[in-house]
Design a protein around this nucleic acid. Sequence first.
DNA 1: TCCCAAAATGTAACTAGTTACAGAGGTTGC
DNA 2: GCAACCTCTGTAACTAGTTACATTTTGGGA
Lengths: 341, 341
Amino acid sequence: MKKTPEPKKRANLRDVAKAAGVSVATVSRVLNEPAVVKKDTLEKVQTAIADLKFVPSAAARAINSGRTRFVGALVPTLDNAIFARFLAALERKLSDHQLSLIVATTEADLDIEAEKAKSLVDIGAEGLIVTGVTHSPAFHDLIERTMMPTIITSFFDPENPLPTIGYDNAAAAQLALQHLNDLGHRNIAVVHGPVHNNDRTRARLAGLKDFPFTGELTTFETEISHQGGADVAHKLSNLDTKPDAILCLSDVVALGILLGFQAQEIAVPDQISMVGVDDLPTSSVSVPPLTSVHLPVSQMGERVADALAHWITAQQPPEPERLDAYIVVRNSTKSADKSST
Amino acid sequence: MKKTPEPKKRANLRDVAKAAGVSVATVSRVLNEPAVVKKDTLEKVQTAIADLKFVPSAAARAINSGRTRFVGALVPTLDNAIFARFLAALERKLSDHQLSLIVATTEADLDIEAEKAKSLVDIGAEGLIVTGVTHSPAFHDLIERTMMPTIITSFFDPENPLPTIGYDNAAAAQLALQHLNDLGHRNIAVVHGPVHNNDRTRARLAGLKDFPFTGELTTFETEISHQGGADVAHKLSNLDTKPDAILCLSDVVALGILLGFQAQEIAVPDQISMVGVDDLPTSSVSVPPLTSVHLPVSQMGERVADALAHWITAQQPPEPERLDAYIVVRNSTKSADKSST
DNA sequence: TCCCAAAATGTAACTAGTTACAGAGGTTGC
DNA sequence: GCAACCTCTGTAACTAGTTACATTTTGGGA
């Protein structure tokens, strides 16, 4: 007495056509250009669609149009607000182009990156967005084989084979050093995240090296987190000769240092000046507000979205694009002579 | 003398079959079960695949398997670390199930949510994850029509028609109030984000109302950002009778208040106690470290991933699941009698 | 009323894979 | 020596849409 042998099967175009007593072409027209369908036919079909709870198959559409309408972005982490802000802008602008965004995190591991890139391509991504110019051979293979439109962000390099849309990391770091130099600081601690698998950080450090600075530059590597910053604050406070300024290549870490210093009652900027790089929203409300090099990540998200959408539709890669970083001077820095009170 | 009339067209299975001198079935086998193919045939085909730079079409695969291997998550924003952390855990666990994650932000707007949900379904999402139980009629329509597996997060309600996996927001807020009550605070400022379109916040406020607290409870609404917190700090400091404790329904705001108080040299917890809700990583390194109700968002991400993956494959919705929040006492609270120094 | 074009609809061939089934060739057992 | 079986490969029919082209219907003007 079973009456439900296979009730689960989803209705398809043919089913709807049969139910409405029309051809598949008509149903397809109701879906795509209802204007050309006569009114009562239209209604008949729409009723059938509603009755059968018909939902067109995305895959079948995609197979004809050759479009899946989504792209993938590979970022090291979502835990750093700088990427979250980039992705927010990217997603917003992509949806103007009728594109959805798949986010995949790589944990700054090139193998994970290649693997996730592969799975993005496998499920049909029409384009890829990646962070930095350094990638595994497997990744480059994949991009070359599939000719997948791929844009590199957070990095500007007009020479790179894949188009880059981003800022000049070396220049951004130099902006910070310039500022400290102008203020007369001579003994500067440079605090940065892991350089392994992070070409942005390496480029920034290289930029600092290239800058004509005659004072002392000491580097400290730590985790990119508030905790990582707090750890460095602790380390710095135990030093025999303390630096008179800190140049921090990440605001998250800078904020952590700031908190660490507060806990130890080291006064910023009176005892020590601090510059960050990123200019997170939080940096403007920290105590003291943090002087920081602003990275235009929201703008970057928008430019990347436009460029990738254009690449996909017009089959033409975009020109590399440099977005300018600039320093925002707040109250975490002051000139060296006054700090030796 | 043109030799490239249409060189762009991607090679397909038939092209490869022709090039390798085998049938399409054999090529398909090379792709899916290479073990059953004779070695030299295998090599011939693989050579052809490489030569033609053949990449199987995801859409064509999906049309047969009925699977697209991705799901969509709708969150209000990426700017709050609480969602970023949830998504990070979700994405990590989903990839164990061979599922990718499409992230869409709704800006806490139910219409945007419905619209983005629709476009996720249109492009073939196999399941959806949404924040909170309150949604637009269009959204509910969509879910019902498509019978899309959909899990609600950040909210626990066993009565809800769609399965919820999350914490009890009322109970979480009460944990904070309980703590302040135990410490003897009688005049408490409750700071929260916009209640409009935010049922989590509303549930928390309702929880506070239900708690048998005999003191004074004053509420303040502000933006969920450090800036929003700083604004409230300013407002509070201008009050005639200041509260002796602040219960903040969001750690981001609490951290902003903390920074605001520092700028105004109001001592926490000596002059005023503070509790937050969220327990962000930053909360443990703020000055002072923030007492906060821990919301198990990473665990939530993992549970949701497992539940949704199971729903998709086994066609069976999960049971609602309550995850426990608990308070983490740090140094931003102290008992009332000592704070009246 | 008839003719013709415009409007509406239908037929069937596409898209790019998977897969049931058939069949060819080779090996083994009796 | 021949049936039985296994291994490997091929044919063709699926999946669910879109769309070029053919055909039917409709309506207006002569």
